[in-house]
Amino acid sequence: MTVFIIRRLMQAILVVFLMSVIVFFGVNVIGDPVHMLVSPDADQADIEATIRRLGLDRPIWEQYLLFVSGAAQGNLGNSFIFGEPALKLILHHMPATLELAFSALFLAVAVGVPLGLYAGLYPDSPLSKGIMAGSILGFSLPTFWVGLMLIMLFAVELGWLPSTGRGDTGHILGIETSLATRDGLSHVLLPAMNLALLKISLAIRLTRAGVREAMGQDYVKYARAKGLSTRRIVFVHVLKNIMIPVVTVMGLEFGSLIGFSVVTESIFAWPGMGKLLIDAILQLDRPVVVAYLMIIVLFFVLINLIVDILYSILDPRVRLRDQGA
């Protein structure tokens, strides 16, 4: 188990290293670093000072080392708009995004898995066919469009739920979150639903396919031959087997939820780091953009790592294979 984790950890470090090279080249070689990192209304002296400070007159590999050591110290430049360190700004907006993404993930599993289970157990029932048609639609509809429709229906027409902002926040375990208050929950519902839609469809499909495959397996027939109740077969034997792919994929999708939250946050004016990114792009606040990119890369690598480890805990065969290799 330890060997497994160490090996995965080394791979993760390699990926972060590679991505830092790519982001560095993206910003400093393809783009114009002076243009990217200096405020547009800076004068000539400012620009020269920055060039010297960033070491842009030095060889490229030295520049890269400077960039990495700066990043490691949490120094990715100051935001032009807010005058604060970009990294600090991003981290400050991160909880709101995580809150939204977790809510969406919860919705996706809580709604998608039961629906998928039903559709898998009774594939011919009209309800199952309805569920599957809905999931196809969920895959095809662009997220932002669904967001607009949700706002139009629930906020404008029905007036049931608020359409913008985060609402009142409270504290759970010392973390400031909208999930702690009624008002906050009502604010989180629409954006979380919007963000979750694609993942609900995914969870439905995965669960349904898993159930249908598992129900035909010998171990299910064997479990029936042992006289187990249908409930135990479905909820222990089948569910535990299909939760492996479902958890893996849904876990991997957590990263994409963070990514897609850019869209949802913009529509619902949710004060997370996605909205911060879009605002930064629109206002040419480049240090914030660079900081966001680095954070998101780190995030993805971390998620992949966690999912790998989770996977190995859930599926004992993975551990064995890795030890054998």
């Binding site: 171990y219 031959a225 042992k226 006289g227 187990l228 535990k240 087997n241 004992p316």
Partner: peptide
């Protein structure tokens, strides 16, 4: 039938690789 299965009438399957649930 459920009361009989595994209780009064038990069954042994062909492929032990496939019949034991791999995750339990």
């Amino acid at each position: 039938l459920q009361k009989l299965r595994g209780n009064r009438i038990a069954m042994i399957f062909q492929d032990p690789m496939m019949t034991l649930n791999p995750v339990l």
